[in-house]
């Protein structure tokens, strides 16, 4: 049972920069929570505070009820995997993994046994004698993961661990890491700015913005039911059109959509896959560009006032550049004052 609780944690750097502001989060036993946000949103700072590499300016961090807020990293039951792997290049793979165990004064035979088991777990059995520079980027990242796992930490912290890898390797490794995490049932906090990573790996996603949590939910909920325009724009591709609502009808940038909310300003949010295009002589939009991805097409459209939106179509060959089309949203959300006011 390992439960991480972050309560009202803030971090203000020298000079007054607020990196994290009154942030609270509970991570359940065996859960994988992704901290997702753009650069500067405070996600890495938060992770480093859990790992003990930054001291919170305020708030409390507990693991299984024990206050670890002021403990140094070597005294915390956490294991961190760094973005740059941070392997010790003067040691071979075995020594990298055995270092933490040796510090705990474990018998040599037990160290060997544990290291070999974890190497097996990450698919690097027999790589113990290799020097770290003899490994590929993916293998190095696996060693970094194994180095954390071998110490059996209560909380695993992953700081953008796949950022330096190519797309193909990234996809493969995130599946492997997710498998290992589920097999070991280890409570994990994962920082990423890649929404694909967050959506495919996390049990829950925390969308962060300017040091605060914008939304905490399951990946499908965050995607389908964003609570703020920022979350809507940040997760996946989203068309955001500003306009006004009058008598249950939204009007903006030449679009007119029924919206059963009170009159006033509103931001209409429509996913590209929720937009149907119908060829029309005097349509609301004109096709700017069509990109054919094989399995589907992405159509860039210019609305009346020049606002550019995107629509996903199954048959891009049915449309042509410069064509006039009408757009019909099949699912929409609407926001006012940074909060969702409608979803349907």
């Amino acid at each position: 049972m390992s439960v991480l609780a972050i309560s009202d944690v803030s971090k203000v750097f020298a000079g007054g920069t607020v990196a994290v502001e009154r942030f609270s989060l509970n991570v359940a036993d065996g859960e994988l929570v992704c901290l997702l946000g753009p650069s500067g949103s405070g996600k890495s700072t938060l992770l480093r505070m859990v790992g003990g590499f930054e001291q919170p300016s305020a708030g409390v961090i507990t693991i299984d009820g024990d206050d670890i807020t002021r403990l140094t990293p070597d005294k915390r039951p956490t294991g961190m995997v760094f973005q740059s792997h941070a392997l010790w290049t003067h040691m071979n793979v075995f020594k990298n993994l055995a270092f933490g165990l040796k510090l705990r004064k474990l018998p040599t035979a037990e160290i060997r046994e544990k290291v070999e088991a974890v190497l097996e777990l990450v698919g690097l059995a027999g790589y113990g004698n290799r020097l770290t520079h003899q490994l590929s980027g993916g293998q190095q990242q696996r060693v970094a993961l194994a180095r954390s796992l071998v110490l059996e930490p209560k909380i695993l912290l992953l700081d953008e661990p796949f950022a330096s890898l190519d797309q193909h390797l990234r996809e493969r490794l995130r599946e492997e890491v997710r498998d290992i995490q589920q097999r070991l049932k280890i409570t994990t906090l994962f920082v990423t700015h890649g929404q694909d990573e967050a959506l495919s790996m996390a049990d829950r996603i925390v969308v962060m913005r300017e040091g605060r949590s914008e939304q905490v939910d399951r990946p499908d909920v965050v995607y389908r039911n964003p609570q703020t325009p920022f979350v809507a724009g940040f997760i996946g591709s989203m068309n955001l059109v500003d306009g006004t609502v009058s008598n249950g009808q939204f009007s903006g940038a030449g679009l007119s959509v029924p919206l059963p909310v009170s009159d006033g300003p509103a931001t209409l949010a429509v996913r590209p896959e929720a937009l149907e295009l119908v060829v029309a002589d005097r349509g609301a939009a004109r096709i700017h560009r069509i990109t054919d991805f094989g399995s589907h097409g992405l159509v860039d459209l210019d609305l009346e006032d020049g606002t550019r939106i995107k629509a996903m179509v199954a048959h891009p060959d049915l449309f042509s550049q410069g064509q006039s089309v009408d757009v019909k949203p099949t699912a929409i959300a609407a926001f006012r004052d940074n909060a969702q006011i409608y979803r349907g």
């Binding site: 590499f53 990293p73 760094f82």
Partner: peptide, 11 residues
């Protein structure tokens, strides 16, 4: 990060 990793494993 190499130093932080060492601190992290208990050094």
């Amino acid at each position: 990060q190499a130093i932080e990793a060492a601190r992290d494993v208990g050094a």
